[in-house]
Design a protein around this nucleic acid. Structure first.
Lengths: 196, 196
DNA sequence: GCGATGACAGATATTGAAATCTGTCATCGC
DNA sequence: GCGATGACAGATTTCAATATCTGTCATCGC
């Protein structure tokens, strides 16, 4: 048990929690494990996080926020809205697929965390729908699209592509026919947008 | 323990199995329970079904097949393909929502059965995609649509509407904003079809 | 003869006692 | 004074002994 070389901070606790989750999985990871990994008593962890639930929520939020940046850059870029939309959806799908493929067990761990923290997940989803809406709005501004309710359209795009971003479908993302399926849905949706 | 009033048939066993599933749920229902409900020894059940798995598969298939008829009637009806498509999707969604809403526990039971019998579920899905393909083909024949690959389009329609027919989303089907969400996706897809 | 039976072996599930965990707080040592 | 500690109560989990279930088959009774 090495004495703490650094002051105990929320950031260090979060890092240790992620390690413990990776090692033991969400079902077995305990606050005591986290404290042990940090070489402190579990009481000290409770000084920085009100409860085990709060700790897990913080980890979940960190994980979900990883995606936001690169996607938001695409949403705010220049160029035809249709191209950016396709790019955005493809990037989202590719990112999810990579995460799920590289370490399925870790992905399952975070999926479980996201499932138990539905509030935080819902906020995350709203943020992504915001980005879709931004693209749709820019398409309306440029005259590419002509629908009235950009947000309803953003949400419809999110719903219609669930198969390709909802983690419950992750086990099937490695199917050989996923790429054609994604392309077909994407084309159908973009045709629908341009038709307005 | 009343002696059997009717000869023991697969149909009677299936019925008893459904009763037992309703009563105890999929996790606790046993072959012994089914035999007890029928007033026979469990050995007799094995005379008609090779295994517990086979029995559960038969029940699953029966449950899934319920939907086919009314939907297939819509798929083969006359009239504009776009209208029938919307009708078909709406009917499917309404049927699922009704089942999930009336008795959520029973729905969860059958969802679990369907999950463990992925082969049978996959066949069921292919049948429904066949019906979507039939509608798309009739739309091509009538000049409404012009895409090349009707089946790819049928599958894209299935994928894009997953949110409204995949049982994993059942808990959210009672949300107040499900109807507008369904309408938005439906409209977007139909616009996309007509655009070709 | 033939469908039904129930004893049986191995697999699976249940149960309850013991161990561990969560969250609190009076106390410690710097 | 102040962050860290560990003992503690109540909740949850683990584990091993016990009971039940699955699937088979020799035997029964009609």
């Amino acid at each position: 048990m090495p004495p703490p070389e650094t002051p105990l901070t929320p950031a260090r606790i979060l890092e240790a929690t992620e390690d413990v989750l990776r090692r033991y999985g969400p079902a077995k990871a305990t606050v005591v494990d986290v404290a042990r990994a940090l070489g402190v008593s579990h009481g000290s962890v409770y000084r920085h996080f009100r409860s085990k639930t709060a700790l897990r929520e913080a980890v979940t939020e960190r994980w979900l926020d990883q995606e936001h940046d690169s996607l938001s850059r695409i949403a705010r870029a220049k160029g035809p809205a249709a191209d950016r939309l396709e790019d955005w959806l493809l990037t989202l799908f590719a990112a999810k697929r990579r995460k799920a493929g590289v370490d399925p067990e870790l992905f399952a761990t975070y999926l479980e965390l996201a499932t138990e923290n539905s509030e935080i997940t819902a906020r995350h989803v709203e943020t992504l729908i915001d980005q879709l809406t931004t693209i749709v709005e820019s398409g309306i501004a440029s005259g590419e699209f002509t629908m009235r309710d950009a947000r309803a359209t953003g949400r419809a795009l999110w719903d219609a592509t669930a198969r390709f971003h909802d983690p419950v479908y992750a086990p099937r993302w490695s199917d050989p026919d996923m790429d054609p399926a994604f392309a077909a849905v994407c084309e159908l949706l973009l045709d629908g947008l341009r038709a307005r």
